[in-house]
Structures are given as C-alpha cells and as structure tokens.
Design a protein around this nucleic acid. Structure first.
Lengths: 230, 230
DNA sequence: CGAATCGTTGATGAGCTTCAAAACTCGTGG
DNA sequence: CCACGAGTTTTGAAGCTCATCAACGATTCG
C-alpha cells in the first residue's frame, strides 16, 4: 500500500468525529494514511494485529477463508472501520482478511494508541460498543441465513443488503461494481449456483441486468423470498 | 418464570464484579431474580427489549428461528450474559430467543438502568465492549463454518466447543445433558444427519458414547476434521 | 398405562457443488 | 492495430451431500 496525505474527513470518520479536543493533535501525529489499489490486500487473516483502519473512501471486502473457499463477511465503504475484529481478549491475530475492491484511501491508527484513546474517551468506547452490538446482530442474522435459508433466498437478502449499503444510481441499479465471484462469496454459495439463481430471478422478473449492474424490479416479490414461510 | 431471592455471586456476575461501590445499593434494588424451569422460555425473538439477564447457574440455549427450523447460536451457562443482543442503535426487539435447558437461576436488570450504569461505569462499558468483540469473532467463525464446512466437520467443531464450555466429568465425558435435537440445531443440520455423522465418528473411533454422554477419544484426528485442507 | 417425545434406520430425491469446456471480455505488449 | 492470454461469463452434465419422509422401537412422564 502506498502512503499518502489525504486529510481525514472529520464528519465521516468514527474516530475523528468523537475525538476529544485535547487528543486531536496526538491522533494527527499517530495517523498514517494509505492508498490501496484495486485488488490489494489490506490486512490478512492470521497476521498479528498492528492497528485499526478507517475507510475514507472506496470499497473493501472483509472475508474469511477455509481451505480454498472463501466467505465475504461484510463490505466496508466510506466511513466504516476495518481491523476492529482484531480487538480481543483471547487472540492477537486478525480473524479476517480485507481486500480493496476499488482504489481505496484509508487511515491507520496503531492498536496501542487506539486502546489508550478508548480508555480515556468514554464516548468513543460507548459508541464502539454499540457498533459492535449492531455488528453482532447482523452477524448472527447472517449465520441463521446460511444455516437455514436456500441459496436463492440468501441471494435475495444479499441484493437488498447491497442496495442498502451502496444505494442506487440514476437508472435505479445497485451502485456497486462487484464480480459474480464476490457476489457468490457474499451469498455463501458457488459461482455457478449464484449465476443460475440470478438467471431464475431475471426470468421471474424480480430483477433486471443492464450490463453488470443489477436492478431490483419487483421489490415486494423479492422480499417474499427473504421472509420465513408460515 | 418464578421470582426468587438467590443473591448474586459477585465473583461470577459480569455486572456485579465491575459495579462501582456507590452503585451497588442501586443495583441491588433494581435487580430481580428468577428461576426458570427446564424447557422454559426466558426471552423471545421479536419481543420488545426490557432488560438484560445474567445467568447465575444452569444452562441456557440462545437460538434463532426461520420458519419451522431453528439454529442454536450459542449456549450461556454460569456467569454468562443473555439479552445483551437487544442493545442496538437500530432495533428494540430481541433478535434471539433464550430457553433454559436445565433449571436455571437468573438475575434481571432493566435496560434503562443498565444503560445509565454503562454511561457512568467506564470499566464496565470497556469490558462489555471487549466481550462483544470476542462474541463477534466467535460468531463470524461460526458463520464461515456454516458456509464452508461439511456437517461432519461442523459437528466436530461443535463437540470441541461443548467440551470447552462445559468441561468433562470423571469419565472424561462432555459434561452436558443435550438432546440430539439441540445438538443438531447447534451444528446447523438436521436431526437425522447429525445422528448418522455421530455414528460415523463412533465407527472411526474418534468419539465414544456412554449412555447419552459423549467422550472424545481421539482428539487429534477429530481436530483434523476442523482444520482446513491444504 | 397411554401419550408424547426421543432415538434409530432405510429409501428417495432435491439442491447444490464439482468438473469440464466453450464463448466472451479486456488489458497488454509486440 | 491485432494477437495473445488471463480472467470472467455461460452452459451442460454428473454425482454427492444432505434434507425429507416414513416407520418403528425405546424411553420418559403425567
């Protein structure tokens, strides 16, 4: 990753927005800014935890692997945190990898400084706690989905999720450039299966494809797939 | 659930151990103690959040459902917290159910009081944050397992997990009374499949059954199942 | 002693993965 | 500018894992 001097946008960065005034100079001196190219690995599962990253802009996939397969746990775009999964009482290695899907600019804070900030900045700690709580709920919902729902339903959930996260462009298409490979890894299924299910959804007029972009055409019926029967 | 007067064991309860001295009387007056019978529902997915529970002793399953299927997300025994998943910036209903697997005694604290305690007791907030961080790691590991591992491997993971959580008795058997139904829901598979896989593991001399109790006989080979190939 | 729940087993096939191969895209360098 | 190769998309076929259904024995419990 290349160093750069992008200043942090105080409005969007979790850390800077909640920073105590007296700590701001210290934060500025500890912060390192990076640019990650498309496809570049930002942090790697199993590596020792060095710090925490805030995404300034761009889009990052957070993923775990097992053998030669991978699962995308979530995406991190503008304003999101990555590397916070390294915080733990038990382990000191990152439990996930993070890879840039677009050119991405990041702000890095080393873990010791971040922890000491947390200890004195109670508002930041409280907000981070609530952030974790939200992530835990999301994670357990996805856990249930993977265990109990069909691939088609999981795909529908994934599409709504992507729409929420990235919004839509002026043609109402989900505003993200995502390979089918990654979509499959996010839905927790194989490439080919996801491809076939996408075809099904197009056949049933629930979604439409313009180029690689996806548009949800029948929100209600697509939503039905994500709702438990009975 | 029945009211009771079990005093809180300060050593084991997350809240009481970290309580500020000046808040202890307030906590005592806010705490309600309950006894839950075997099979009794403690809190229900979708119900409005009223507070948070600390398990004094016994064993509780935390589960989510979809249609007529269910997945056990985790177990909570002595000293663990349930209902903390209700904390969220977005929603105010419990995202999971909790059911007693044995006669269980609990301590209940209403959510408003708990939140105001959190705001002033920074040590408690910090510890809760780290607790969430650990749970998130666990949750995402399980997510990956459900997406990428075979039922047999997930069963192996589940058995190790149960051994860690409940320990072993004097015959080296995993010290928990768990129906195959619940074991299946924990491993994320059907009753029958889990039954067959258990048989396989017995055939291969990786585990042994004495009555309903399970003993891991070949830890190394069982561990192999849980490790990614290559 | 029913009644209900749980354990056990076999048969069947849906759902999904895997493999294989052709068609298409796209950047790269000659 | 085109040829090349690497990656991605598309499609078909084969088969494996696992869920589902069904039926019966065992155990628990009011």
């Amino acid at each position: 990753m290349k160093n750069c001097n992008t200043p942090c946008n105080l409005q969007k960065c979790f850390m800077c927005r909640l920073a105590l005034n007296e700590w701001k100079p210290a934060i500025d001196s500890h912060r390192k800014n990076f640019l990650a190219k498309k496809g570049e690995l930002i942090l790697k599962e199993g590596d020792p935890v060095t710090g925490i990253y805030f995404v300034y802009n761009g889009n990052v996939k957070v993923h775990k692997k097992w053998g030669d397969k991978e699962l995308i746990v979530r995406f991190a775009n503008e304003g999101k945190i990555i590397g916070h999964r390294g915080l733990s009482t038990k382990s000191s290695v990152y439990p996930v990898s993070a890879t840039a899907l677009e050119p991405t600019s990041l702000c890095f804070i080393d873990i010791d400084f971040f922890l000491s900030t947390l200890k004195v900045n109670h508002d930041l700690a409280f907000n981070l706690m609530m952030f974790y709580a939200d992530e835990l709920q999301e994670s357990e919902k996805k856990m249930r989905n993977l265990a109990l729902m069909s691939v088609k339903s999981r795909l529908a959930v994934a599409l709504f999720h992507l729409k929420d996260l990235f919004g839509t462009d002026d043609e109402d298409c989900i505003n993200v450039e995502l390979s089918r490979q990654d979509l499959a890894a996010f839905a927790g299924a194989t490439y080919e299966t996801v491809f076939r299910m996408m075809n099904d959804l197009v056949q049933e007029n629930l979604i439409a494809l313009t180029g690689k972009k996806i548009r949800i055409t029948d929100e209600e019926k697509l939503r039905d797939l994500t709702i438990e029967a009975q």
